[in-house]
Simulated scan of single mutants.
Amino acid sequence: MPSILLVVFVIQLCLHIINTFGANTINQLLWILYNKLPVPTSKRAAQAASLKREILRLKRELSGLSAQDDFARWAKVRRQHDKALSEFEKIDNSLKTHQTTFFSTISTLRWLGTNGLRLVLQFWHSKSPMFWVPAGWVPGYVEWILSFPRAPMGSVSINIWGIACASMIELVSEAITATYVLVTKQAPPTMEANEPMAHKAQPQPQPQPAREGKKEL
Rank of each mutant, 00 (worst) to 15 (best):
residue 160 I to E: 07
residue 175 A to W: 07
residue 51 L to V: 05
residue 55 I to C: 09
residue 141 Y to I: 07
residue 96 K to H: 10
residue 90 K to I: 11
residue 132 W to C: 00
residue 77 V to L: 11
residue 131 F to P: 04
residue 143 E to C: 13
residue 144 W to V: 10
residue 20 T to Q: 14
residue 135 A to N: 09
residue 54 E to A: 04
residue 76 K to Q: 13
residue 95 L to Y: 03
residue 66 S to A: 07
residue 193 A to K: 11
residue 21 F to W: 07
residue 140 G to Q: 15
residue 171 L to C: 09
residue 49 A to W: 02
residue 62 L to N: 05
residue 148 F to H: 08
residue 144 W to R: 14
residue 70 D to C: 03
residue 139 P to A: 00
residue 33 L to C: 10
residue 31 W to E: 08
residue 190 T to E: 15
residue 21 F to T: 00
residue 167 S to Y: 08
residue 16 H to E: 12
residue 17 I to W: 07
residue 171 L to Y: 08
residue 204 Q to W: 02
residue 120 V to Q: 01
residue 142 V to W: 07
residue 10 V to I: 11
residue 16 H to D: 10
residue 137 W to G: 00
residue 164 A to T: 13
residue 193 A to Y: 06
residue 90 K to T: 12
residue 154 G to M: 09
residue 54 E to Q: 15
residue 13 L to A: 14
residue 117 L to W: 04
residue 178 A to E: 12
residue 206 Q to A: 11
residue 9 F to R: 12
residue 104 S to K: 13
residue 200 K to R: 14
residue 185 K to Y: 01
residue 170 E to K: 15
residue 51 L to M: 01
residue 35 N to V: 06
residue 5 L to G: 06
residue 190 T to D: 15
residue 126 S to P: 00
residue 112 L to K: 10
residue 67 A to L: 09
residue 14 C to S: 03
residue 142 V to M: 09
residue 10 V to G: 03
residue 51 L to E: 02
residue 117 L to K: 04
residue 18 I to V: 10
